[in-house]
């Protein structure tokens, strides 16, 4: 910053500016104007170029630095990507395991429910109709029939409308047969799901159910069916005394 004193005093500065700014047409003014036009053109061009693509105006070493930055960023992001992919894969693996475990558990629950008689069941099987015109057929024969069916591989059994499960019992009372508390009337209908041929032949063997019923004056007909629907269900009771034994020795106290 130069600090030299003013060449001329006061108000004449503005006056001089006015004199300079006055339009004149000389060769010098022409040159100066041409240069001014060029300067304005270059200025506008540079401003536009700078705004358009900022990388275009950079030198080689600056570009190398920018490239390095971008490469480093890319590597960092790639690492992050790999981490996230690993996390995603492990989460997906967990999900698959979980789904498989869930499906297996559901399968187990289904088979146990059918065995326990808490859900309806359907499948191939037999329908046995026993008529008892002389009222001689009692609980023991029906129990034998159920036992015979179980031996033949029946998976679900229903007599009348009552599902037969482990807790089912037959009693003779007042000349009628009761299954549980429910009285049964002739003809007795027994539905069983299982291998139809096996069960049918189990009924037909000498000394078997069909022959026993015949001896008592009744008639037993066995029909093999492609679809037997067992709709009777029982409500599962939670055991009061029995507990699952996990195999720990403390059970024998």
């Amino acid at each position: 910053m130069s600090e030299r004193p003013e060449a001329r005093p006061g108000p004449s500065a503005w006056r001089r500016l006015y004199v300079i700014a006055r339009p004149r047409l000389t060769r010098g003014t022409l040159f100066v104007t041409v240069l001014a036009v060029l300067l304005g053109f270059a200025l506008a061009t540079q401003l536009r170029a700078n705004r358009g693509q900022p990388l275009e105006g950079l030198r080689e070493d600056e570009l190398v630095r920018v490239l390095d930055d971008v490469t480093q960023n890319g590597q960092r992001l790639n690492g992050e990507l790999r981490d996230l992919e690993r996390t995603r894969d492990s989460l997906q693996g967990n999900e698959t395991d979980l789904a498989a475990a869930l499906a297996a558990a559901k399968d187990r629950a289904d088979s146990l429910s059918i065995l326990a008689g808490t859900i309806p069941a359907t499948g191939p099987g037999v329908r046995i109709v026993i008529t008892d015109p002389e009222h001689k057929i009692g609980a023991s024969l029906l129990l034998d029939t159920i036992q015979e069916l179980r031996d033949a591989g029946a998976e679900a059994i229903q007599i009348g409308s009552a599902r037969v499960v482990t807790a089912t019992y037959f009693t003779d009372a007042d000349g009628t047969v009761r299954v549980g508390t429910q009285p049964l009337t002739s003809p007795y209908t027994i539905l069983a799901i299982g291998e139809p041929a096996t069960m049918a032949s189990a009924m037909d063997i000498p000394g078997g159910v069909v022959e026993s019923v015949h001896r008592l004056g009744g008639e037993a007909t066995v029909a093999s069916l492609d679809t037997v629907d067992i709709t009777g269900i029982v409500t599962a009771k939670a055991p009061v005394f029995a507990r699952p034994d996990t195999g720990t020795p403390s059970a024998t106290k």
Binding site: A36, V37, L39
Partner: peptide, 30 residues
């Protein structure tokens, strides 16, 4: 006065024409 007008005209031309700066000139123009 006339050079100032010339400057304005130059800026106007630059804005309107939108010229592409040649690559070899890029480092030197600013």
């Amino acid at each position: 006065m006339i050079p100032a007008l010339g400057l304005a005209v130059g800026i106007l031309i630059g804005v309107l024409v939108k010229p592409d700066v040649p690559v070899w000139l890029l480092p030197y123009l600013p």
